[in-house]
Simulated assay, not measured.
Amino acid sequence: MAAELTLTVNGEPRRTAPGSSIADLVTNLGLDPKKVAVEHNGEIAPRSTLADVQLGDGDVLEIVHFVGGG
Score class of each variant (00 low, 15 high):
I63G: 05
E4G: 10
E62G: 06
A23H: 00
G70S: 11
P33S: 10
D32C: 07
L25D: 03
G42C: 03
H40Q: 00
V60W: 04
N28F: 04
V36S: 07
L61V: 04
D32A: 03
S48E: 11
G30C: 07
D52W: 02
L31T: 05
V67D: 03
E12A: 14
T8F: 10
N28H: 15
I63C: 08
G42P: 07
E62P: 11
G11W: 04
M1H: 14
E43M: 12
P46I: 01
V38F: 00
L55I: 03
N41D: 13
V26D: 00
V60D: 09
V36H: 08
I63V: 07
A45C: 05
A2S: 13
D57H: 12
T16M: 06
A17H: 14
D59H: 05
I22R: 00
R47V: 02
L29N: 11
P13Q: 15
L55K: 00
N28L: 12
G30T: 10
I44Y: 03
N28R: 13
L61S: 09
S21R: 01
P46Q: 04
L31A: 04
P33H: 10
G56Q: 15
V26R: 04
S21W: 09
A23L: 08
V9A: 02
N10R: 10
L29S: 10
A3I: 10
V9L: 05
E12K: 12
L31N: 11
P46M: 09
D52F: 06
T49G: 04
E12F: 06
K35V: 14
A3N: 15
H40D: 00
V9T: 13
T8Y: 11
N10W: 06
L5H: 13
A51L: 05
R15S: 15
S20L: 09
S20M: 13
A37L: 15
L61P: 01
G70V: 03
L29I: 01
N28K: 12
G70L: 14
D59A: 03
D24N: 15
P13E: 06
E43F: 08
T16V: 15
S21F: 09
L5W: 08
A37H: 12
G58S: 04
G68K: 03
G19V: 11
L55G: 12
G68Q: 12
A2V: 11
D57L: 08
A37T: 08
V26P: 00
K34F: 04
G69M: 05
D59V: 08
G69H: 01
A37D: 07
M1E: 05
E12C: 11
T27L: 12
L55D: 09
S20G: 05
F66I: 02
T8L: 15
